[in-house]
Design a protein around this nucleic acid. Structure first.
Lengths: 344, 344
DNA sequence: AACCCCGGTGGGATCGCTCCCACTCGGCTT
DNA sequence: AAGCCGAGTGGGAGCGATCCCACCGGGGTT
């Protein structure tokens, strides 16, 4: 009930018998405070149960102590993709012993994009993390325009100009395909992700590289793009079976698509892995529960999140040290690993 | 490039040839502005590309225009549970045409709990959404203590004093069990959630109610608690099989636990659904991909999120209309439905 | 003895807004 | 004709912090 106003820095100063500035110094860990004063202030703070107003602080420092995680995805994905949860968890971990708060911004349509633009223009965050970038995404350009520290998960293309963290998509895909070759498969198709995303592109590239390296067929007819959804995977599988009924393996660029492919293969009377081996990507919870359990390329998604956070912290540091804009773009490539299960 | 300071309300006022107050009035949609003035201000705003500083506004209004979604879960869950993603998506939808921003706060250990306490004490958000509450969770009490508008997903017990939204856990469980009875099953075990959570409790209650109603065995030996994880489900299944080798059905309080149960049943040579029927809860992506696909109780998780958001908005409204604390606790119960697949 | 330096301190100005209040100026009452 | 009202307006005073700068006093230098 005590409707007593929250104490302010003034209250604390009065209580401790010092000036506001001294309290502020203690709060910010300045060394220019006598031990006596510091003790008095700390006592006053805990007696009054004082917590500084971050809003007031932000007004004068023009730093908000918060970062945004922007997820630009149409309805369909966030739900089905454990990927985003893992990234969130990683980011949260990476931020957990800093004073930074995490804002979550879902951008699903034009209106939300406009809102985001205003939000960024109002400098309501000190930095931005962006996942799931498409080649022609307007967001990265927006970030560059605003000169806001930013880190991407993934990249628009190999020439990405913003800092980013991604996993070794080409390498992981190649490893998967090499595994299939080793198992004696010769006609290895791929269901790719959207080709306007670097993940889609790079995983297909890895598939192609490994096939050529092994002297196997890497023709275009064996690659069918889909959209990372289960239904997309099913459709792509159907198209591939039509073109190449004799295929004996499929590498899908995500577990969810692989799950769709499995369903379609079953519908066409193909046994997995006897007739057709299947490998997915992500090693998500889905992979462990399909029938049969899915061999999959594991990527360290949570680590992607935490790495993004660290990099962003560095960029924000630089941004207020110097006001020189470019401290240099950073990029981190994280390794993948193959988890073999019964589908291959 | 252009290091021109962001324009402030003063700049706009000067440009429009009016006073700051008039600009503020236009910004806040006050009717006490002449059309001429309003037009001049709007022109100035768009010419200068002005976006008001929400920080300055917050300082004076002492409202932050943001709410926190607090997820107090140990590492294990957020990853495996599509539940949280869906809630997030729902919340975001419910907030999307308001000016409120969403902060995501993961509380995984004592340190993060302390941080949260300070965060709330600093009134850095106008309201709080809390998911996954345990009976002895310290958080709800904290919220009541701070007098912060708050809405829970789920409840501590049937006598929950805070506003909350939950699905018809008992009803959904009962429906699942009735379905099993109808299929001729007689010895129906259950793998419950943690019994210190209302979800765990209520779903077990529904199981028990339906069994009694059908005149079937509802003895304690047929209920084994687990922790919503796959490994937990496996362990619980093992215990149940040991106690009741002859059981012919299992109702698991989550799909993930049901998946664990499936694996364990297979290990023991039981066929699903021939020997043992299995039903899960959540109708998550996992349910569609298990072998065999899982019959499951669907709950409208996304709707839980959006409903929480609406309720919180109402509570925050009230909180600044009157300063009377209790506008009354709200509670919403959302219906579940049974999705039948091959496991039963 | 006069000086300077520097650790420690506090008051005023400031950040960009909202809100209170005092003011103007037509159009109506009486 | 003198008042009064109410719509429209703007300046000043905050909100609660930080930061600049002026100040104070004691120890070391010359």
């Amino acid at each position: 009930m005590g409707t007593s106003q929250r104490p302010t820095i003034k209250t604390v100063a009065a209580r401790a018998g010092v000036g506001r500035t001294t309290v502020s110094r203690v709060l910010n860990g300045s060394p220019l405070v006598s031990d006596a004063a510091k003790a008095a202030v700390q006592a006053a703070i805990s007696e009054l149960n004082y917590v500084p107003s971050s809003v007031a602080r932000s007004l004068v420092t023009s730093r908000t102590q918060s970062v945004a995680l922007v997820i630009p995805e149409s309805e369909s994905r966030l739900g089905s993709e454990p990927y985003f949860s893992a990234v969130i968890r990683g980011v949260s971990t990476g931020l957990s012993d800093t004073p930074f708060q995490l804002l979550l911004i879902l951008v699903r349509d034009q209106r939300e994009l406009d809102q985001l633009r205003d939000f960024l223009a109002a400098r309501r965050v000190d930095g931005v993390l962006l996942v799931s970038v498409h080649r022609d995404d307007p967001l990265p350009a927006l970030l560059e325009e605003f000169g806001l520290p930013a880190v991407l998960a993934g990249r628009r293309s190999a020439a990405e100009s913003l800092s980013h963290v991604h996993s070794d998509n080409a390498g992981g895909a190649a490893e998967a395909v090499r595994h299939l070759l080793r198992r004696g498969r010769r006609t290895i198709a791929t269901i790719t992700g959207p080709l306007d995303m670097d993940v889609g592109h790079s995983r297909r590239q890895g598939w192609r590289d490994a096939l050529r390296e092994g002297g196997a067929d890497a023709s275009e007819a064996l690659a069918e793009p889909a959209d990372f959804t289960e239904e997309g995977g099913r459709r792509a599988m159907r198209a591939l079976l039509e073109r190449r009924p004799g295929l004996d393996a499929v590498f899908a660029a995500s577990d969810v698509m692989a799950a769709g492919a499995l369903a379609e293969l079953r519908r066409h009377g193909r046994r997995v892995p006897e007739d057709v081996a299947v490998v997915g990507f992500d090693d998500s919870i889905v992979a462990r529960h399909t029938d049969p359990p899915l061999t999959s390329v594991r990527q360290p998604v949570e680590e992607i999140g935490s790495t993004m956070a660290s990099i962003l912290l560095e960029e924000m540091d630089e941004a207020d040290e110097a006001d020189r804009p470019g401290g240099g773009r950073r990029q981190v490539l994280l390794p993948t690993s193959l988890v073999v299960r019964e589908s291959s």
